[in-house]
Structure formats: C-alpha cells, structure tokens
Design a protein around this nucleic acid. Structure first.
Lengths: 248, 248
DNA sequence: TAATCGTATTGACCTTCATCAAGCACCAAT
DNA sequence: ATTGGTGCTTGATGAAGGTCAATACGATTA
C-alpha cells in the first residue's frame, strides 16, 4: 500500500468530485454543487494501484475509504493457511472499505485485478464533513445499507441456487454494472479468473468452466477465455427468474 | 405492525436506555451518561410483538430501527411465490433494520419467533441526534459495518463449508451469544425450526436433522427437539477450526 | 382423552457438484 | 523457437447432500 503511494507524482493529481464523470455512481450522489466542492477538499489524491497489488489488507488500520476511479478490484478474506474466499468485485464508482467504516481495522483485503486508480477518502475528514452535511451523512448510511443488502443477495445466491443459476446471476449483474458505466452490456472482458469467480459463487473452477461451456452450447453466450459475449439475454434472465432475492 | 401498536398501554412504558440492562450490547454502547439520556428521548416506546407476527415487512416504508428487548426474531426475504430465505436470527440487544438505514424501504421481513418486546428508534430522531452526538454517529457506522462483516461471514459459511461445519458454526455462534447475555452457553432452546435453520445455513431440513443426530451419536451434543445441550465444546470448535472467516 | 396439525427423524434412492487427472492455449522470458 | 508458468477445458469417478416417503413425536384444541 505504501509502495503504491511513493510512485505518485502528487502534484496536479488532485481528485475532484465536482468534475468527476462518476458523480452519479459514487459518493457525491445527491449532493448539491457547493457540498460537492466541500467534498473535494476531503479527498486526498488520485492513487494508482498496479495489477496484483493490495490496496489494503485484512487487519490493516482503517484510515480511509477508497473509491474505484478506473480498473477492477476483488475483495477477499484470507485464512491463516493461505486459502482465500472472494467476497466481492468492485468497479468504477464503487466504494471499498465500508465493512470497516467506523471501526479500527479493515475486515478484508482489496486486490487490484488490473492497473487501477482509486480516490482516497480519509475517514476523519469524511466523518467531520458528514456531521456538517446531513445529506452526506445520510448518503453514507445509504451506501452501507446497500452493501448489507448486496451481501444478503449473495447469501441467497450461495444458499439457494444451483451452479448454473449462480453463474447466470453473476453474468447478469456484471452486464448491468457495465451498462450503468456506459460500456456494452453485451460484450465484456472478465477481469478475474475462473477460480476467483468460483470462489465468489461458492463453486469450483471446473464447474465454472463447464457451466460456461454449457451456456455456450445452448447458444446463450459466446466464451473465448475472458472475452464474453451475451447472445440470449432473455434465456439467461429466464433461468434466474423464480430465484428469490434479486435486489441488485 | 400497526395492530401490534394499538394494544400497547403506552403510558408508563417509556423505554429508557440509561437504565436498560442491555446497554452494553445495544445502541448506547460507548455513549456518555448524558448522551444516553438524550438517546432516551429519541426512543419511542417499548412495543410487544407476538409470536408469528411481522414487525416490519420487505417493502414497508422505512421509518424506524428496532432493538430487540426480549425474545427472538428471524429476518427473511420472501419471493413472490412465497418461498423464503432466512437471512438472520436476532436476540436481545441486537438491532434490526440496518439494511434499510438511510433508505426508504425495508429490505427484509422481521418475524417474531416467540412473544417479544422491541424498542422503536425513529429514523429522523436518530439521524438528528447522530448529527449532534458524533460518538453516536460513529457508533451507527460501526454497527452497520459489523453487520456487513457478519453477512460476509455468512457468505464464507455458505460458500465454503460442508453441512456439519455449517451447523457447528451455527451452534457455536448461538452459544456465544447466549453467554454474552448471561444465559448458559451449554444448554439452550432453539427458537427456530429445523427448516429455518436449514434456510439460514443453505441446507435442507432433513440434513439439519441428520447432522444433529450425528453430533449426538458422536457425543458432542444432546438433542431433544428444540432443547440443545452442548457436551463437547472442544470437538465442535475443532471441527470449525481450519474454516476461514470466523469473525463473529 | 382423543384427534389433529405442524415438526422431527430416519431410510432409500438419485442428482449435482467436487475431486482427480490429463491435455491444451496463451503469454513471458530466455 | 523453446521452455515454463498459469489458466482453461474436458473426462471419469465418487461423495455429499437433495428428494421422496414413511413414521413418530408433541403441542394445541376438541
């Protein structure tokens, strides 16, 4: 984490929410223009994180929230013996670290799946600002409750669905999030491995691979390694309908 | 919910955090005495909820957080066709509704598994008070992040563990929470059915039953319907050690 | 006390997915 | 071009747990 910091030419890299294209997805959502300018001052800088690097690790002192500016992260929990479980994937405009907000330690590890840029939101400044700007405070509550609901959705998925349903939900979710960011919802590149998908969805990498292959045989998608093309969105949605808890 | 309200003799039932025995587990944790007195004013009343009744339902307008005073709740997500997935069990001193905090709709349904009493914490009063008392605001953040971490723990459980490991984690967790409330950690009564346990743990009720039986054969516990006695805590812990993500 | 309904237990069988294993594709470095 | 590494695909096999079904238990009501 400190390694990532040292290589930044800090000058001229000031992050500014008030002109950021991710406003509508990110922390400033719903703030008035002048409140957003106040928020600008609370944001530290724009930090690059290189592929494979950890932005923060489980157990690190919690000092800041991070917003993804560009790139793609996974968050994981790692056991003593090195096994890991993926708890989420995070793309532009999404916040990481909410699971530690208000506490003193990070509850997971965030790793960049490609070269990324993040905005750092120091906790103490954010907390003070939130006390001044009720709309910001409320928005922080809202972001956290959304995270809780997101996790509960994942619980349903892990608890109730079969492998193909899980993968269908995963694809739909990814597709929607791409669309919300102005990218194609029909064609995209998976930034994570089959193993990471499997860890997130509670299945083995072989099962992920087989299920992708089956979807392809059925003509629902086209898979070429990490390149995904969605051919029959309706069929995928059909598979998922009937499953409960789809509040993404 | 309104039905539950009407039957309260509101007079003389004012809830008071500053004298409540659950202080150390509940919302006021960490507040100064005078701050707690302010909180007293923000708490509406002590509400009874009878067994089987819903305290709030998914989609209800979000107006309040609720703290369990006595009794036992489950929270569930219900699909259109009536199937339900249990997302958590809640006992004295625990808050419900955090998944909707700062939003306008409840994200789940809370149902009393026995006759209960709850404290109602109206959102607008809590929000205003939090802006005045930074310690309270921070504590709310902390409670929400704890909920996120709790859910992530459940994700790990559902994604990685086998049936017997899940049930072991469940028993340990329940046992600890009983102990934290001054009850026996070795002997307690399950308030939920096998089916509800199964829903929460992502397995069928038959598997729950079989696994209980196996634990009993191994001499780890004694089961008589809903009555549980823990005989060999070490063995149960042993089974669970090696599993990752045990931050309860 | 008997009857009834919801809940729990246990058995037999079958599906789904994990495991083990082999081979392939792709990239990077030499 | 060769080598090695990493990630992906596919097949064969088996174990865990789901499904179906029969029965028993236990609390509430008649």
């Amino acid at each position: 984490m400190s390694a990532a910091r040292e290589i930044i030419p800090i000058h001229a890299l000031k992050a500014v929410c008030s002109t950021c294209s991710l406003q509508e997805l990110c922390l400033p959502l719903g703030l008035a223009q002048e409140e957003m300018v106040q928020l600008d001052d609370a944001i530290n800088q724009r930090m690059p994180v290189r592929r494979g690097e950890a932005l923060f690790r489980l157990g690190d002192a919690f000092r800041s929230l991070y917003a993804v500016r560009t790139g793609f992260f996974k968050t994981v929990v790692v056991s003593e013996d090195g096994r890991e479980q993926v708890t989420g994937f995070h793309m532009a405009g999404e916040l990481m670290g909410l699971d530690a907000f208000g506490t003193d330690q990070h509850g997971c590890t965030a790793i960049a799946l490609e070269d990324c840029e993040v905005c750092e939101l120091p906790y103490h400044r954010l907390e003070n600002l939130a006390l001044e700007i009720p709309a910001l405070n409320r928005h922080l509550y809202k972001l956290m409750s959304r995270e809780i609901i997101r996790d509960q959705g994942a619980m349903l998925l892990l608890g109730n669905m079969r492998a193909e349903e899980r993968l269908a939900v995963f694809l739909l979710n990814l597709s929607q999030r791409m669309a919300a960011r102005g990218f194609s919802s029909r064609q995209f590149v998976l930034r994570m491995t089959r193993e990471e998908i499997g860890s997130y969805l509670g299945m083995k990498l072989e099962t992920v691979s087989r299920t992708f292959s089956r979807f392809q045989q059925d003509g629902w998608i086209k898979v070429q390694g990490k390149q995904i093309e969605v051919l029959d969105l309706a069929a995928i949605k059909q598979l998922v309908s009937g499953c409960i808890g789809l509040q993404h």
